[in-house]
């Protein structure tokens, strides 16, 4: 990696949470236990692209998103933004970084302060970051509301007066108010109904086009991720197991886990039944991640080597990067 053209460059990002010891742990003097949620994530975000992140619940998608915006302190690894190390040294630096890298949350009901009107929410964001002078703010609020297709009288209303889809628009407007370069969307539309989902996704795509935004789109709905993303990363137990262009990954996934995941998504065509056998077993606990390839317990192609050594993410001709010892054979089959 010589010259780095990506806007956000993440290397070897790891994150773990300490488990609160139970009373027995204290009495028996057991050592502290850690949930290893992220295990060496490498990512690049090019300016203007959408990177989709998919994986089963608990695989670390939200943790990744929260680490990227500094909601969790950086424990291990490096985040470069515009080739500058984001170590969040001073509050001013952190604040400037957050202005440029914004996040939107999954739950439209808890991500807005129930006691602040939409106008107050936007006003606060605009004035804290001095995006506009005090006199220009009302005009800017109207612009933002237009941008996310909310009526202008929305400014005087409280969050409970809006539907879920409208609330996510408010959250988008809040994020856009500080004119960020990167938007991190953690399950932005998961809580919404399909028809409303489509409205919000259209809005996001349109805004990206118009404002040249870079988006990290975290979701568990594969159809949606495929629709909005240029590239997609598949995460399993806190590691990227496959990353590549959306087209090739969905058309021809290589990693056995990607295959299983994509296969499990039910098609709306009743005659397009699943051909492969469903995965057996469940996601192992991140408290004790299996040795070697973390997927070996559920993988139909596992061999001896998979139990012993952890496969690295490697580029494969004609595909993206895959972390599997048998990627080459699987590509041929």
């Amino acid at each position: 990696m010589t010259e780095n053209t990506s806007l956000l460059h993440v290397t070897n990002l790891s994150h773990q949470f300490k488990i609160d010891p139970s009373i027995f742990d204290v009495i028996l003097r057991r050592p502290s236990r850690y949930v290893k949620v992220l295990n060496g994530i490498d990512l690049n975000l090019a300016r203007g692209e959408t990177l989709g992140v998919v994986g089963e619940s608990g695989c670390g998608k939200s943790t990744l998103a929260r680490c990227l915006v500094g909601l969790y302190p950086l424990q291990n690894g490096e985040i470069l933004f515009n080739n500058q190390n984001v170590s969040h040294k001073t509050r001013a630096e952190q604040r400037d970084y957050n202005r440029r890298v914004q996040m939107m949350f999954q739950d439209p009901y808890s991500s807005l302060n129930p006691r602040m009107t939409v106008g107050q929410v936007l006003h606060e964001a605009l004035s804290v970051h001095k995006m506009r002078s005090e006199t220009e703010i009302p005009e800017r609020i109207n612009e933002l509301l237009d941008l996310v297709s909310l009526p202008r009288d929305a400014a005087d209303k409280l969050p409970h007066q809006f539907s879920g889809g409208q609330r996510q628009r408010i959250a988008i407007a809040r994020a856009l108010s500080v004119e960020p370069e990167i938007l991190i969307a953690d399950e932005l539309v998961s809580a919404l109904d399909v028809s409303v989902q489509a409205q919000v996704v259209n809005l996001l795509l349109d805004l990206q086009e118009r404002l040249g935004l870079t988006i990290l789109f975290v979701a568990h709905d594969l159809r949606l991720v495929r629709h909005v993303s240029h590239r997609v990363a598949v995460i399993y137990l806190g590691s990227i197991v496959e990353i590549g262009s959306s087209d090739s990954l969905f058309a021809n996934p290589i990693h056995p886990y990607s295959r299983a995941l994509l296969n499990a998504a039910p098609s709306i065509d009743p005659d397009k039944k699943n051909t492969t056998a469903p995965l057996t077993g469940e996601l192992p606990s991140p408290l004790n991640i299996p040795s070697g390839c973390a997927f070996h317990g559920r993988c139909p192609h596992a061999t001896e080597i998979c139990k012993k050594s952890k496969p690295e993410l490697k580029a494969l001709d004609g595909h993206g990067e895959i972390a599997c010892h048998h990627a080459k054979e699987l590509a041929l089959s």
Binding site: N98, Q102, F105, S111, N113, P114, A125, V128, H129, V178
Partner: peptide, 11 residues
């Protein structure tokens, strides 16, 4: 609630 996290992300 995420609005607290949102406040942090808003800087």
């Amino acid at each position: 609630n995420d609005y607290a996290s949102a406040g942090k992300v808003m800087g």
